[in-house]
Design a protein around this nucleic acid. Sequence first.
RNA 1: GGGCGUUUAGCUCAGCUGGGAGAGCGCUACCCUUACAAGGUAGAUGUCGGGGGUUCGAUCCCCUCAACGCCCACCA
Length: 890
Amino acid sequence: MKFETENNELSKTLDPKQFESKWYNHWEDNKYFAPKMGKQKKSYCIIMPPPNVTGKLHAGHALDMTTQDTIIRFKRMKGFKTLYLPSMDHAGIATQSVVEKKILEDEGKSRKDMTREEFLERIWKWKDEYGDFITKQARHIGVSCDWDYFVFTMDQGPHEAVNKVFCDLYNEGLIYQSNYIVNWDPLLQSAISDAEVEHKEVKGAFYHVLYSVKDHDTKLEIATTRPETMLGDTAVAVNPNDDRFKHLIGKTAIVPLCNREIPIIGDEHVDMELGTGCLKVTPGHDFNDFEIGKRHKLETINILNSDGTLNEYGLEWKSMSCKKARKLIVEKLKELGLFIKQHDHIHQVGHGQRSHVPIEPIVSKQWFLNVQEMASTAVKAIEDNKTRFYPKGWENTYFSWLREPRNWCISRQLWWGHQIPVYYCKQCENKWAAEHKPECCTKCDSKHFSQDPDVLDTWFSSGLWAFSTLGWPDKKRMKEKSFNDFFPTSTLVTGYDIIFFWVARMMMMTLKVLGEIPFEKIYIHAIVRDKLGRKMSKSLGNGIDPIDMIDKYGSDAFRFALAAGSGYNRGLNLDPERISGYRNFMNKIWNAFRFIHPFISNTKSKLPDIQTLDNHEKWILGELNSVTLKMNESIEEFRFDDACNAIYQFVYDKYCSWFIELSKNVLYGDNEKSKIQRTSVLKYCFREIVALLHPISPFVTEEFWQYLKNDGEDLLIAQEYPEFDEKLVFDKDQSDMNHFIETITLIRNMRSALNIKPKDEISIELFSGDKELLKYFEKNKVYFHELARVKTIVTANKNGVRPPKSIMSATTNTEIFMPLEGVVDINEHIKRLEKNLEKTKKEFNQNDKKLKNKKFAENAPKDVIEGVKKKVSDLKQKIISLEENVKSFK
RNA sequence: GGGCGUUUAGCUCAGCUGGGAGAGCGCUACCCUUACAAGGUAGAUGUCGGGGGUUCGAUCCCCUCAACGCCCACCA
């Protein structure tokens, strides 16, 4: 027992470091995380959204993992066969950049100085070295995943899944190669998908330039934000309904600078109101223009190199960046007198999600996945409630992405990733897809063939994650991993920022490949921000490092803070102060435990016979029972905030503040029988508290369990989760106790207001119309002394004679009189009484008015009317007694 | 340009299908009372963003305005 000091006493403060890693190792080493069939005879599976291999645990991961682990531990205790499957993503672009940068820094070598094989070897080496850093950190969070199931997206299993799916979709014609305009990231020098483009507001300008018309003396004024792309213009377009220009359709315009002759065409797309009504068409570098180009069979000219600089079409500006060229070209146009004017223009420009540089629309040969049909199937699955979003509102985000999908560009010009399994024969120009590297060409048997150099978008393999992690497509592996038990998985837990990156794609791919939904529920949690609601970022330096927090406050407190902030909200503003608050909470529980510890060692954990329970015991068990219900319901529907509040309040306000305090008298008293009974109730409640809390804060609760468990009982992680019990509902005891608490609080309030020293004892007289309640007070005389230092107490019916010259206060059903003793500031007391009176009268009037309102009486439901009636009569009584007391002093 | 969301105590937020507003932290006063000062007891504070409407009754429903935030959209 590590907590005991030299004197064999438990230390006053809880030190999480004493047991966190101890318990994690113990759980892991003894296979407590492995799926095991429990009483539910059903399984429950969550797949961890794979963190990037380059990653360091950030607050978002911590929230992700905490909510997942809470659900898993809850379900495990409920008796489900649970699997929390840990995984990791190769994160193509991110990882390749990191490693490239590192090699450049260390050795001054770029990727181009190496062969593909050499480079990949280096990445794998890097991955082996740093790759499981994040999984080590995850253990500090306490994730109860079965590490035997760990999968990396580049492992053999997922690789086979990727290849199989690719080939099937290819053979079905859904994966195709096409020359199409794509988002080109000039820094990565790769195509990226639409989802990876972020639009940012950029201050630019409209440049007005003159194009001359061949054999015609008019000049066309064209407005553009990108004058440099005129070098790739292959048409000028006007709206065919535009009277200003329609006579020019069919004529030829001449592009300045390169003097290319291009047709003037009519296209409805041109907005007559915008710019000058004349549009330069650059099919090679603009999405709209590309479409126009297709419609009019225009030539497509690519004026850019893969790094975003101008190529030979750039003439004298060749090899310059677009930005630089733009400036010089504008100057040149000015010289030539072709420049009219420019004015500022703020517009949205696409930037690479990873590289943060402006993306260039470029026409290139890429692989695409036709998602049209898959998308509508995925929409339907949610519409039909086959899978549900929690909170439901996120459906809209999902739908908005899937209802107008553009085909997914899945090829990336990178080396790190799943290489596209398409092969090209050098002999016969055959092209085919194959799951396994072929021996020879499928047509001509030639051994001279090459594989497509591109790799797949990282999200392609992630899209298969719901089933490739469980062994698919290999029958043997699927059996080993109990595929049939765990697929479809139960709940997907993730942030809203990847609803379309990941959730939508898993839905599409899984429905397509297996014809089933990937998961039954989708819980979308908040995005973690700093306490001011700002995104955590490196540049702001406002990031919260989970490991720091765990170090400072303990994993349990950190987890509790995250859970307490998680419900159906979209943002979680994490303030370290809060974590520290919950650290205090953990310490509070610890000290409650320290108090009961000496009494419970020889006590049974079993609940005593209900018949023998006294009022206070029934009360606490009733309260415990409600909390149990609340916790079960809340976790079930992902309202972790409610669950945390419920247990927090129970522990602080019920168990510690009242039950333990009320128990002292019993425990230090002489009645052995009551003592034993009270001890077992204290212990029983504490065991339940610890069990209820375990899914949220696993370490400290497991530690407590060691002191609480019976001989032969397993660890807490393997115990059953408490359930609501109808036998433990005690309404009468609950309401009596509430009156009691109210009365005690009021007496304390009076003491405090009158500046009576905490140690001084007082006498009081209680008047009430409720005989039962008076009896209850009589029975609890001793506690008035314990809790409010009341020396003598007299109870009387409300018709009794009030003591003269007494300080008075009242709840709605009890009047409290405190005879004057010593020097008390009467004026102060009268002031207080009058304030109270005013407040009570106001409340009375409000309710009375309502009652007198005919329409209220006609329309309001009976129970509401009854409630108001009762309130009015109680308040009236209270007013009378307050007034009398005021009078007695005047 | 579309869509979504937020606006409740000093701060961060809860308030389910309408019956008179809550929590945590912070703050104030008094207490080192033998579980806990990472604590105890008591206390203060809100025109529930503005305006209008429906209703006997609105923080909750409808309309409108405002502020802030997020997402989507092909850069004329």
